[in-house]
């Protein structure tokens, strides 16, 4: 089964950039004052999902 890619809920994202700084594939970037995922690069490792302080990221089983 293919794990779902990380998805950021823009309404909840506070643009703290934690996810950007831990993404091992450089798949998250700053876009219009929020974090945004490039699904082509995302490997569903879920690091960003776990570390989001406000729980704005879903994916990879979470």
């Amino acid at each position: 089964m293919v794990k779902p890619k990380a998805k950021i809920d823009e309404k909840q994202c506070l643009a703290c950039c934690g996810c950007i700084s831990v993404c091992p594939k450089d798949a998250i970037y700053w876009f219009g004052g929020k974090a945004s995922v490039n699904p082509n690069r995302c490997i569903s490792c879920t690091i960003c999902v776990k570390i989001c302080p406000v729980g704005a990221i879903s994916g990879g089983g979470y």
Partner: peptide, 13 residues
């Protein structure tokens, strides 16, 4: 502040 490796989604808040 919590260590990211010990975090769960939304745990800090």
């Amino acid at each position: 502040g919590i260590l990211a490796s010990l975090s769960k989604p939304g745990l800090a808040k």
